[in-house]
């Protein structure tokens, strides 16, 4: 019984992984690809890990099950953080949205961040100029 549930969970997780990577190939721009691939592959791999944990608790060893649960927890926490950081970096480095995109909620904030960066850069270059004049 436990083994059957284990194999079902692993199979569903594999299907999620496959369709997530299909989204990575088929979708039109970075942001679409990142959201499709990250959500599907994170949850798919977590499901595989839960399946392996059930199988391990059922027959192999408790240590393996605990490690699988730990790994699932870790991926569930870190993978969205990584994807969010990449998308933010992609937007700030100037990758355009797909022309069919309906809304751009990050636009104003990104412009403010860019202006702040330009101000900081201006101050830094001013300090360097003063140093050069002093020497």
């Amino acid at each position: 019984m436990l083994e059957t549930i284990c194999y079902w969970l692993v199979g569903i997780g594999l299907a999620f992984d496959f369709f997530g990577c299909l989204g990575l190939v088929r979708l039109p721009d970075v942001y679409n690809r990142a959201q499709a691939a990250t959500k599907c592959v994170t949850l798919g791999t977590c499901m595989i890990l839960f399946g392996v944990a059930l199988g391990a608790f059922g027959g192999v060893s408790v240590a393996m099950g605990v490690k699988a649960l730990l790994c699932a927890m870790f991926i569930l926490l870190t993978s969205p953080v990584g994807a969010h950081a990449i998308c933010r970096g992609a937007y700030l480095s100037g990758v355009p949205l797909w022309e069919g995109s309906a809304e751009d909620a990050f636009k104003e904030r990104a412009e403010r961040i860019r202006e702040e960066e330009i101000e900081e850069l201006g101050e830094e270059s001013g300090v360097q100029r003063e140093k050069a004049q002093a020497s």
Binding site: V41, A56, A68, I86
Partner: peptide, 29 residues
């Protein structure tokens, strides 16, 4: 470059799944 970074991230997660299947197959923890 962000496309490639996303794909590398996803590839890393897939390798974790691969390791799980190896653990299930060999029964080594």
């Amino acid at each position: 470059a962000p496309d490639r970074t996303v794909a590398i991230d996803i590839l890393g997660t897939l390798v974790v799944g691969f390791c799980c299947l190896m653990a299930l197959w060999t029964r080594q923890d």
